[in-house]
Simulated scan of single mutants.
Amino acid sequence: MKIIAVIPARYASTRFPAKLMQDLGGKTVIRRTYEAAINCSLFDEVFVVTDSNLIYDEIVSNGGKAIMSIKEHESGSDRIAEAVEHLDVDIVVNVQGDEPFINAEPLAELLEVFKKDTDCKVDLASLMREITNEEEINNPNNVKVVVDQSNFALYFSRSVIPYPREKNVGVRYFQHIGIYAFRKQALIDFYSLPMKSLEASEKLEQLRYLEFGKRIRMVETEHVSIGIDTVEDLERARKELSIKY
């Protein structure tokens, strides 16, 4: 089973333009992320896929592998699907370009899902963590997921799901962590399918998979990644890096 990591890397960002090219301890954010993915030792190959010549040159000039997007894309899945369409791979892991402190343990757990899935019942695997703070639960920026008894995703939403009409029934709330491992065919299928109303309403691409019958196995984790979405996040990442090294 050939396993690769793909890092979708857009240059533009609404909240923090050019964040992937910002300095983080003497290297750019995207280079830190790429090297962290390599150092996980979980993947046969690691690629950055980007719409930016700057990002492409940053990776290639430092000995890495990068792919230029040919088309404009609405989502990370679309960008990755285009990149891997003609690659001979089985499993594709989506690593976020703005998360340079990659933790190998939850990624290994995602890959273990496919190694055990001998009947090929899983199309995607992704991560979730339990949240108990009411503010976190109600925050629409925290995407929630509900699962069945086998931890297959039933629905994702920015709203509170399930709705707590009765509070004393042992309901657990899970935040979706947007790290995915895909079977290649699931990505290719996604690429050819139209956006439907649920995805359009919630602005959550994972709903397209569910709307078209794909099965997403969720893996519970306690890992919380450090993403860089703002200037303040970058400063925290710099402090974290100084502690690590």
Rank of each mutant, 00 (worst) to 15 (best):
E135S: 10
I102E: 01
A81Y: 09
D23I: 04
I80M: 12
N168H: 12
D88Y: 06
A108M: 10
D123M: 03
S75K: 07
F182I: 05
E240A: 14
C40M: 09
E85D: 10
Y11T: 05
I137E: 01
V60G: 02
A9T: 10
Q206D: 11
Y245M: 11
Y180E: 08
H86V: 05
K71N: 15
E240I: 09
Y180M: 09
A66S: 11
S61I: 00
L127P: 02
E82F: 06
S69W: 01
D90C: 09
R10A: 14
Y173T: 03
L42Y: 11
G26R: 05
R10W: 14
A12P: 00
A108K: 15
L193Q: 13
E211Q: 15
S41A: 12
R79F: 00
A83T: 02
H223I: 01
M218I: 14
M195Y: 10
V29L: 13
Y56W: 06
G26A: 04
N138K: 15
T221M: 04
S126W: 01
F190Y: 15
L24V: 10
A153H: 04
P164S: 10
G76V: 09
G178P: 07
E220K: 06
I188D: 07
G170L: 05
F190W: 04
N168C: 06
E82A: 04
K121D: 11
Q206G: 00
I161C: 05
S242F: 05
H223W: 15
K239Y: 09
S61Q: 13
S159C: 04
R183P: 04
P106W: 09
E166P: 00
N94Q: 15
P106C: 08
D98H: 08
V160T: 14
F174N: 07
E220M: 03
E109C: 00
D51S: 07
S13V: 00
L54D: 14
C120D: 14
V29T: 08
L241W: 12
I137W: 11
A186R: 02
F16M: 06
R32T: 11
P194C: 08
A181G: 04
G97L: 09
K196W: 02
A18G: 01
H73E: 14
E240T: 05
D51V: 04
D119F: 10
T28H: 01
E199V: 05
E58C: 08
L154G: 03
G170E: 12
P100N: 10
H176P: 03
V145W: 00
G178R: 05
G178F: 03
S201C: 01
L154F: 05
S201P: 00
V29E: 13
R165Y: 15
R79W: 00
Y209K: 02
V89S: 05
G64L: 09
V46I: 11
R10F: 13
I243H: 13
Q96W: 02
Y180F: 14
N138T: 05
R32P: 00
